[in-house]
Design a protein around this nucleic acid. Sequence first.
DNA 1: ACTGGCTCCTGAGGGC
DNA 2: TGCCCTCAGGAGCCAG
Length: 271
Amino acid sequence: MPELPEVETTRRGIEPHLLGHRVTGLVIRQRRLRWPIPRALDHTLPGQIIRGVRRRAKYLLLDTDVGTAILHLGMSGSLRLVPRDTPVGKHDHVDIQLDSGLSLRLTDPRRFGALLWTTEPAEQHELLAELGPEPLSDAFDGAHLCNAAHGRKLAVKQFIMDSHIVVGVGNIYASEALFMAGIHPTRQAGRIACARYDALAKCIKQVLAASIKMGGTTLRDFVGGDGQPGYFKQTLRVYDRLGEPCHTCGAPIRGKRIGQRSSFYCVNCQR
DNA sequence: ACTGGCTCCTGAGGGC
DNA sequence: TGCCCTCAGGAGCCAG
């Protein structure tokens, strides 16, 4: 479900309810997520005060004085703040109970998400150490893409979705950014001019920033940490618009599977 | 070193 | 109503 804008929307929604608050209890109903939730969390997190609510790529980081909880929402995960005694649903796997009487509740039907724990600086954790730059940072630009693309033969869409190249570009925004930049999604990454990568980097920043501003994309039932839906879906130009007219030229939007992921593009506007 | 394919899991929707 | 198939917003892992 969540792409970077949804994760950032969630972060902003939950942060004011967590920062400076003490964890009073931890309820784990289902330990088997993508990786088992480590037992170390059970007796270390309760009692701790949340000192930071950060995001790196699509990982949410909850800092305490003794370690950092690393959360990932996978395809179908969401976080909500609920009163402690709120009835539990089938896929409500974890409650982090807070001194305010609220609980941060992790719901994830498909269980592709994760909840891990590290006592090192989180950015040194093996899942985070090798990640590429944040797309909205100055470290990410066209030159970075152009350098990294040198000699690469895979489709540019798969290239920009590789978190070692740049983080946070998921399946929706990859299609959207390539349309905005006028680049065909199957073009080989190493056969794109640097000037076009400048445009693509700008489009990636633009589409992600715009989506964050609107609270993320609601495809089915995404809600941010404050329970409000996102409003970006209505602005999507190509994603999930198979056969509908291109907003620029009117040609029907085409669909194709690229690297096992559905992709959408306009054959006239993207080369 | 790259690349493509597979994998985890549940639920929704379409065809019959 | 039910069965079977395909697909879904992620991304680590593995063989070739």
